[in-house]
Amino acid sequence: MLALLGSMLILFIVGPLVRLLFMASPSGLGSALADPELQASIALTVMCATAATAIAAALGVPLAYLLARARFPGRRLLLGIVDLPVVIPHPVAGIALLLFLGRHSAVGGALASLGLEFVSHVPGIVAGMLFVSAPILVSGAREAFVTVDPKLERVARSLGDSAWGCFRRVTLPLAGRGILAGGILAWARSVSEFGSIVILTYNPKVASILIFDRFTAYGLPAAVPAAVLLLMVALAVFALVRLVEPREHR
């Protein structure tokens, strides 16, 4: 009975994806690959997702280490804040970012005066992606740090390592695969983001918006090849995550 119930859910996940993969003909895929607009869109998506992941890593890994190791007042609140974007509907996140980073807000205005504009600009795409994907990276990195016994770090310190040396020679090598897996998942989440980006920066179009655009303008046949290409990218990333994530998480 348990197996039957589980099989129904698995079928529900796999079925639509297999159906989509078989919808695209080789010639359709070939022409999609040669489509300059789709090529530019996928390149933009990959570039923005990579930038968002890099920013999430630079700011999120130290935060994840702090949350894994330190006990301080407000830690639980901080953990909740980090996870907040997960429960916020993405169009709502888009509107919130628009209000926060738009030219008429204090922050957005100040940044615009420095030449950094978000709404209808590429940084808006990165901001949307960062907002939804950062929690994934921080959670993954925090879990990876938690699995590294603090006593290993104490031993390393007693053997002469500074705090940074110990982090570099012990903590990072041991938590590295978990952090990398979190980073790849965050990158994949960025690639698939639609809801917040459609509000912040409709143009230039990332792949998810281009697929939506073609579906609403030209119907299913025009959207399927692009959708299949994006699905293939997602599956490749998924395979990569399975390859790098720590054995005990598999």
Binding site: K151, V155, R157, S158, G160, D161, G165
Partner: peptide, 11 residues
């Protein structure tokens, strides 16, 4: 700091 104490530890 621990690294300057020259104390070896075995847990």
């Amino acid at each position: 700091p621990p690294e300057q104490r020259r104390l070896g530890i075995v847990y």
